[in-house]
Computed example of a mutant assay.
Amino acid sequence: MPLSYNDLSLKDARQWFNDCVVIKGSELFYVAGIGESADVGLEENPKGDKYAAHLTQGSAEGAWFPLSDIAPYWPQERLINVGREALFLKRTADRQWSRSLRRTNASLQTLHSAAERKVLALSHMNFGEERVLKGLSRLDYPSYSEALEKVMSGEVWGVAFSPNYAIVSHAGCAEPTLHYKEWAVGTASPRGVLLESVAYFLADELSQFVPTLEVK
């Protein structure tokens, strides 16, 4: 790396990594704080890191690690499964420079309306929660039939079966709704998918996941 972390000021180190999701080893962590190694008891570390990151996973107290132990995390936009719902990880423009995923350059888009979330008691989620970190870490998805069964049984309110597609239960809808990323594009049933005509261009991609597909 052309620029060593030790060349940064403490202010810049915090701007780069504070309040971010990062990788350590093979796991995702939330950076709850950036401090000088000497001030947090890590003045002696193998690589001589000047700065340290306080890493947490959910409500756990966490611990301090040398800054060189972490790596930036830049996921692609995709649907993720968290708790009883599917969320769309959406990247946004960041006015401040950062080296990893954080709430100023990404958001978790719900597939339910505000009224539905209130009725279903679905709470707001943030990147520091353990369940969100686990959802971001998980790269595997259930099959279409498995996802549909979970939604129709009431086990979950929504579940993604690929990075781009999810099945969601909505109030007032007789059948579950098919979502492409954050948009509703059709209905889902054991028979297959009925795709809205405006979303006809998704048919080829979607056909690899569903048993049968029809366009209105």
Rank of each mutant, 00 (worst) to 15 (best):
Y30I: 03
W64I: 03
R14S: 13
V119E: 14
K11T: 10
L213T: 01
V21L: 08
V21S: 06
Y51P: 04
V119P: 00
E205T: 11
F29T: 02
I70Y: 04
D12K: 14
K216R: 07
V119I: 03
S113H: 07
R78A: 13
V119A: 11
V210M: 08
S137T: 12
A86R: 11
E175S: 10
R117D: 09
E130Y: 08
I70Q: 05
A121Q: 15
D49Y: 02
K134D: 12
Y30T: 03
V185Y: 03
L133E: 07
S100V: 10
P163D: 08
L178Q: 01
R131V: 15
K216V: 01
L194G: 04
D7L: 10
A106M: 05
H112K: 07
R95M: 09
S153V: 10
S9M: 08
R138G: 02
G172N: 05
E146H: 08
F88R: 13
K118L: 13
V185W: 00
H112S: 06
D39L: 11
Q57N: 09
L87E: 04
T212S: 14
E214G: 00
G83V: 10
T177C: 13
S59G: 03
R78P: 12
D204Q: 09
F17D: 02
S26C: 01
F65H: 11
L55S: 06
V151E: 11
S37K: 03
I23Q: 09
L87K: 12
E36G: 10
L111D: 09
A60C: 08
L213F: 02
W16G: 07
D7Q: 13
Y5N: 08
V210K: 12
E129Y: 13
D94W: 06
E155A: 15
G154N: 05
R103T: 09
S26W: 04
S137P: 11
W74Q: 13
R191P: 00
L89P: 11
A184W: 00
G192R: 01
K24Y: 02
R131A: 14
N18I: 01
H54Y: 13
H112T: 07
P176L: 12
S68Q: 04
S143Q: 07
L79I: 12
K216N: 09
M1T: 01
E27S: 15
V198R: 11
V210G: 07
A52C: 04
D69I: 01
S37I: 00
G83W: 05
A63R: 14
K216T: 00
G35S: 13
V82C: 14
P75A: 09
R84G: 10
A13H: 06
N164G: 09
L3R: 15
N105V: 01
S189F: 00
G25T: 06
V210E: 07
A86Q: 10
G62W: 06
A53M: 02
V198P: 00
D140K: 13
S197Y: 00
H179F: 14
H170N: 04
G135W: 05
L28S: 04
S169D: 12
E27Q: 15
T56M: 12
N45E: 00
W97A: 15
Y200A: 11
G62R: 06
